[in-house]
Design a protein around this nucleic acid. Structure first.
Length: 534
RNA sequence: CGGGGCGUGGCGCAGUUGGACAGCGCGCUGCGUUUGGGACGCAGAGGUCGCCGGUUCGAGUCCGGCCGCCCCGACCA
């Protein structure tokens, strides 16, 4: 049996009502006219017509970045606002994207020896307080449960903002000997952080993520793990999400509360702001000491473990949207896209319809059978042109058009999301559809990474003094020699709103030598990026 | 959390200085004609005007409080 669609429940008609499409007529207020045209004939100036066209999709990215982002998230059906401030409903299309992200990461975690487990949502308040820096860092954004079953709790429970503490508690019990090490655990979970200012996917009160927690016998092993997982994130971001991230170390000011050192994959968004897209921490013995995570070494001596933690969240969806999106909406990298190819059938009458649909179904089935995530858009009462725009807004990387002419010539038209208009269209033979589609998708994936990399590189500027730094961060990222002190970073932030993003690992393989900070002149810790960040 | 703007059918909006039946476009439902880049006609359905309270003979309209959204400033994946 031929499946009707790879997404049987995709886009129920009711949902479509929420998209807010408009026809070609002018908004109500422009209806007044004294042109002498018969009533009902509306005079629309070209610029108004253009605006009207745009309003059917999303506000162009170039016009209002922030509004564009919010509209894309909602109109592409990724997520919606929830009844509680700062919370979001992740809709099926958005969740399918997350599932694909999760699958790719999980595969990599397993391949590096980690096992999944699940730890509780509620954490005793006292646990958080065991690590001084940790509690200080998280205290302002904790959600605390004080009542349960109608009774006031003896000890308040914290809704986990992260799980170092409960997992530390468990690790202390699980680990006895050096033979139990390394202990490599991951959990997929939701966490809660009471943020003041929220944005869909980028910063919500509750979000989904993955947090890895490991324990090791030595600092070196912990450090190796920290960097290994940073590399896993970078590999995922670059090769799956087509986001050219930069691996780097966070300055002391920006590091995780309770970590000895934090590492980040840092990405540049379409408005040239930076987004921390994943982090990996070497926790040293801080949590081991707080939770008594100890082991007997081969000499029968009790030692504290060294632990790490690393996390990547649904924020990465925000990164994908903002790295790749354009004026027309979302653009998804083929490797993560819930729908990789959408088939749009075209016909004029019943006769053509049956021939076209027959071919479309056959191709649909062929592509599904080789694992291409394909959707056949057999919705009625919508013109092909409407569907083209609809799927472009949703970011589907490849589109196949099949009409009577194609049926006759045993061909199809393939259009690619990364190249707009006619230029992105090509014809492919129906009997060569599998190689044609796979090649197209690989090519789109590669091209998206190339475009994003070129954009990033064009907007990073080296700066050798404060004036150059100010100029650089006004329109991109600055790369400077940096002392890493709190005073210096505070001053830069005060003046420019830019914050220290990281000391990139690739550019800091050699020490700073006698280089000095571009801002204060003190000895440099290394080369660092500064940028406005989310 | 501070400053500015905004909440009226699913979406975008109009609604003068309080006054009759709360309107328009899109979308939605049905039928017919359409369909290679956002189609059209006809007939329908759909609204406690964000919520709570107050002023008034009468509140979408005035006052107070709360909630939410957008933009801008201090913290964060």
């Amino acid at each position: 049996m031929i499946p009707r669609s790879s997404h049987p429940d995709f886009l129920p008609r009711r949902e479509r009502a929420k998209l807010g499409w408009r026809g070609l007529c002018a908004p109500a207020r422009t209806r007044e006219n004294f042109s002498g045209f018969p009533s009902g004939f509306i005079l629309i100036r070209p610029e108004e017509r253009k605006r009207s066209m745009a309003s059917q999709g999303v506000t162009p990215r170039s016009e209002d970045y922030s509004r564009w982002y919010t509209e894309v998230v909602q109109k592409a059906d990724l997520a919606d606002y929830a009844p509680v401030r700062g919370c979001m409903i992740i809709k099926p299309y958005g969740y399918e994207l997350w599932e694909n992200i999760r699958a790719e990461l999980d595969k990599r975690f397993k391949a590096t020896g980690h096992r999944n487990a699940y730890f509780p949502l509620f954490i005793p308040m006292s646990f958080l307080q065991k690590e001084a820096e940790h509690v200080e860092g998280f205290a302002p954004e904790l959600a605390v449960v004080t009542h349960g079953g109608g009774q006031k709790l003896e000890e308040p429970l914290v809704v986990r903002p992260t799980s170092e503490t409960v997992i530390g508690h468990a690790f202390a019990q699980w680990i006895q000997s050096y033979r139990d090490l390394p202990l490599l655990i991951n959990q997929w979970a939701n966490v809660v952080r009471w943020e003041l200012r929220t944005r869909l996917f980028l910063r919500t009160l509750e979000f989904l993520w993955q947090e890895g927690h490991t324990a090791h016998a030595t600092w070196e092993e912990a450090q190796e793990e920290t960097l290994r997982m940073l590399d896993v994130y970078a590999d995922f971001a670059i090769n799956e999400a087509a986001i050219p991230v930069i691996r780097g170390r966070k300055s002391d000011q920006e590091k995780f509360a309770g970590a000895e050192a934090s590492y980040t994959i840092e990405a540049m968004m379409g408005n040239k702001w930076a987004l921390q897209s994943g982090t990996s921490h070497n926790l040293g013995q801080n949590f081991a000491k707080a939770f008594e995570i100890r082991y007997l070494d081969p000499n029968n001596e009790l030692q504290y473990c060294y632990t790490t933690s690393w996390g990547l969240s649904t924020r990465i969806i925000g990164a994908i949207i903002m790295t790749h999106g354009d004026d027309r909406g979302l653009r998804l990298p083929p490797r993560l896209a819930p729908i990789q190819v959408v088939i749009v059938p075209i016909f004029k009458n019943e006769e053509e319809k049956s021939a076209v649909m027959k071919a479309a179904r056959r191709i649909h089935e062929t592509l599904l059978s080789v694992g291409v995530r394909t959707h056949l858009d057999d919705r009625e009462g919508m013109t092909p042109g409407f569907k083209f725009n609809d799927w472009e807004l949703r970011g589907v990387p490849g589109r196949m058009e099949i009409g009577p002419r194609d049926v006759e010539k045993k061909s199809v038209v393939l259009a690619r999301r990364d190249v707009p208009g006619k230029e992105g269209k090509q014809t492919a033979a129906q009997d060569r559809i599998i190689p044609a589609v796979t090649r197209l998708l690989t090519d789109i994936q590669r091209s998206m990474l190339r475009q994003a990399t070129a954009f990033r590189d064009a907007n990073i500027h080296e700066a050798s003094d404060y004036e150059e730094l100010k100029k650089a961060v006004a329109d991109g990222w600055a790369l400077i020699w940096h002392c890493g002190t709190a005073e210096c970073e505070a001053r830069i932030k005060e003046d420019t709103k830019a914050t220290s993003r990281c000391f990139p690992l690739d550019l800091n393989k050699e020490g700073p030598g006698d280089a000095t900070c571009a801002v204060c002149g003190k000895p440099a810790q290394g080369k660092a990026y500064f940028a406005r960040a989310y």
